[in-house]
């Protein structure tokens, strides 16, 4: 990757994760977590070189349509059905510094709430022009943008009548393997956010609200697409100025 900043590479360990802010492993309201959550205490490990380093993804991996879910699976001259939107924002770290060169991968259901997947059982129809995945890399200011259609809500087997609010899944790769994060983006004004057992795995209302993208009227493109702004925050890094390390390391 081309060096996106004059700052020297950062080698500090990451701020410890606030595990009261994240969902706990065991959340019985989300039934699948019951048999898939570790029951023993995690072993705390302040970052070694194995955790503070991470791979770099260059812009060369990106295809021209990777950040356009309306067209990246569509037949030539056609486009996906649905409400056309732009999702954009910045990836920052906890120190409010932009994270340049972060790889974002996203996936979502189509406008009817149906995923293109063999195990998907919802009766809503597939859109032949919608695949449901895309990716991009943040620029030097940590900024990203992509085009898609607004996903539909969908029912899922958990409680008798549980539905997911409209959402886009995000996978984020920052600068260290310990910064790895998967989360979901929700849409401003959706009353279903507050009924969802997966949203409710997050204990703190403020942490949920941080995942709700605002309708960004200023960036809406007339006669084309509305915009939603979604900023993502990754773990910050400690300064290495006063780290006690062996000479020469």
């Amino acid at each position: 990757m081309t060096d996106l900043s004059n700052r020297k590479p950062e080698t500090g360990a990451f701020f410890s994760r606030d595990r009261l802010w994240h969902p706990p492993g065991l959340t019985p309201g989300y039934k699948t977590s019951v048999l898939r959550s570790p029951q023993k205490a995690l072993l705390s490990l302040d970052g070694t070189v194995s955790e503070i380093t991470g791979p770099v993804f260059g812009h060369s991996i990106l295809g021209e349509l990777d950040n356009d879910l309306i067209h990246n699976f569509a037949k030539s001259g056609e486009s996906a059905i649905g409400e056309r939107i732009i999702v954009h924002g910045r990836v920052l770290d906890e120190r409010a510094r932009p994270v340049a060169g972060a790889l974002l991968e996203f996936w979502q259901a189509n406008a009817g709430g149906r995923y293109r997947h063999k195990k998907e059982s919802y009766l809503a129809p597939l859109d032949p022009n919608f695949g449901g995945c895309g990716r991009t890399i943040t620029d030097a200011d940590g900024y990203y943008a992509f085009r898609t259609i607004k996903p539909g809500p969908y029912p899922w087997p958990n409680g008798v009548n549980d539905w997911r609010p409209a959402h886009i899944h995000f996978s984020v790769f920052g600068h260290g393997f310990a910064q790895r994060l998967i989360t979901q983006m929700y849409f401003e004004g959706d009353p279903m956010i507050w009924k969802c057992p997966i949203v409710q795995t997050i204990p703190d209302k403020a942490a949920i609200e941080q995942l709700v993208a605002a309708l960004d009227w200023g960036n809406t493109i007339p006669m084309d697409a509305r915009a939603y702004k979604f900023d993502i925050v990754l773990r910050g890094r400690r300064s290495t100025l006063f780290e006690n390390r062996m000479e020469g390391n």
Binding site: E94, H117, C133, I198, I208, L234
Partner: peptide, 25 residues
């Protein structure tokens, strides 16, 4: 300081997003 974005499960269709060719896309 900001708070780290809270995690959410990768869900049943994580392969669509991260290994689309494997998932048949």
């Amino acid at each position: 300081y900001l708070k780290e974005s809270a995690s959410q499960t990768a869900g049943p269709y994580v392969h669509i997003g991260l290994t689309p060719n494997f998932s048949g896309i």
